[in-house]
Design a protein around this nucleic acid. Sequence first.
DNA 1: GTGAAAGCGCTAACAT
DNA 2: ATGTTAGCGCTTTCAC
Lengths: 315, 315
Amino acid sequence: MANIHDIARVAGVSAATVSRVLNGHPYVSDEKRQAVLDAADQLHYEKNINAVHLARGKTETIGVILPFVSHPYFGIILSGIASAAEKNGYKLMIVQTNYNVMQEMDALDMLKLKQVDGLIITSRECPIELVEDYSEYGRIVLCEALSGNLLSSVFVNQYEAFKSALSFLKEKGKTNIGYTTLRMEGKSSSARKKAYEEQFGEMRRHWVFDQALTIEDGTRIAGEWAALHDRPDAMVITNDFVAVGFLLECRRIGFSVPGDVSVVGFDNHPISSALNMTTVELPLQQLGEIAFQQVISVEISHMEVPFRLIKRGSA
Amino acid sequence: MANIHDIARVAGVSAATVSRVLNGHPYVSDEKRQAVLDAADQLHYEKNINAVHLARGKTETIGVILPFVSHPYFGIILSGIASAAEKNGYKLMIVQTNYNVMQEMDALDMLKLKQVDGLIITSRECPIELVEDYSEYGRIVLCEALSGNLLSSVFVNQYEAFKSALSFLKEKGKTNIGYTTLRMEGKSSSARKKAYEEQFGEMRRHWVFDQALTIEDGTRIAGEWAALHDRPDAMVITNDFVAVGFLLECRRIGFSVPGDVSVVGFDNHPISSALNMTTVELPLQQLGEIAFQQVISVEISHMEVPFRLIKRGSA
DNA sequence: GTGAAAGCGCTAACAT
DNA sequence: ATGTTAGCGCTTTCAC
């Protein structure tokens, strides 16, 4: 493996000049430049990026924490991040955490170890204070509503988005509305609770279904819903995949959607359109792109992305 | 930023001993070990992983090339890779290529630059010879049928899998069978053609639908199918998402599935179960895990993973 | 314009 | 057990 010094020797110049040529710096004579290029070629020179990273003190790499890479919600955010990263010449390091705090810490450590210049956390399990402790090592962006001047954030207004779904259902004459959450204790969960209780008063606990992330969760929840003596006549559901599972299972066991129960999903994933399902569109791709811009920015910022209720046939 | 030498000075030992302690090597006295640990603590020492990478000549990082991170097919493979990587203490660098050769080259270069120790290519656009040229820089694993001793591979037997779907449809009395492909010129495309023609003779060009990757593609193809004067009475479809788009659109425009057209998908994604769709199960998560094992292995190997026809209501 | 030289921070072979 | 020393390969300041 030839290195920069080998080239310098062969080209009859110094290592510094080789570095200049290789990095396209000005102030190198054409003859020397050509000599360096020829030598590099002749020696089959390949740059060692780790040496560059060490010498420069940065890696042009961003870490991305996500609980599940194969879930469309995170997949689409990741896709947005990836396309922005590519445009800006950055590489991406991903850590799939399964909401495991140990793995989240592992990812945070990449920042401390200078393996990545910045970190995007699409969702987390660990306490925010812990994340803040890492802000001194590089820019961190969270995909959740946040303020403060330690971390950047990009998010959908969960409260308003949820409220818009509720208002729509109310207009349609629905008053017994249930909903699902990913995790009961989560932040967006309390935003939903607040929006709900403002419109309908105290929530009935058994109308809130927890652990709703996948199609299978939706299927399961449909069964739980059907078993209720006082079934909600409408459901606002975490995301389109859960909603699909719910809707199809309801129909399978003999209920009508929206006759017996209206369904509103979130994301506007293509599947919702294929199933003619009402949903709240979230610009997830764009959210990912914004997150990337924030992570390479020197400034800390908090950005809200818009949502949009898309009325289709399930509500 | 304190470094190993600062610690050595404070602890009254050499840098080498500090390195030993930090890396858990044996043969360090307890007193010195403690002194080093204390000093590290006191100086808020953080290791610089780039220096480690440079000195060691490797990075414990694997690159993953995938055309689209948000497509469930690739997402699930990635998930398998990610979980295996985590278990083995490796990090993952991902490159979303959109089947763009430039970006594929970019990813291949990570290997050359020693940014990653190995590379997993889930799908590619660039010629195999080009990939082979990079095999000297580190282990490369492709997720496609392959032989030779330059690259490893893990794959489903496309020919047999497709054949099993065809045979099943034939048993059901279907003889006018069409199918979809991701890309006409692709390798799996020719495997399908071969399997098809062995059972049914010469293919009719207009019964093969190209560019089938997403739900929307399925929707579009349903329209094309419906417009045909000699419509196939069965379709074998690239993956469950395309199949979902196809199936739902067929029903929406007034056809019956499987009455007017049988549908068989691939992957056995949860969506196929929710829609009671017949599909050929592919163990994609496992495929990802195997790919990871291969990429960190010193040996080159070629592994075939099993498939399984799952009979449901769409065929 | 160009080169010398001092790092960047850590590892590991060798010596003791 | 511990230290010395020579890198790993590139960047960048400073001097000429």
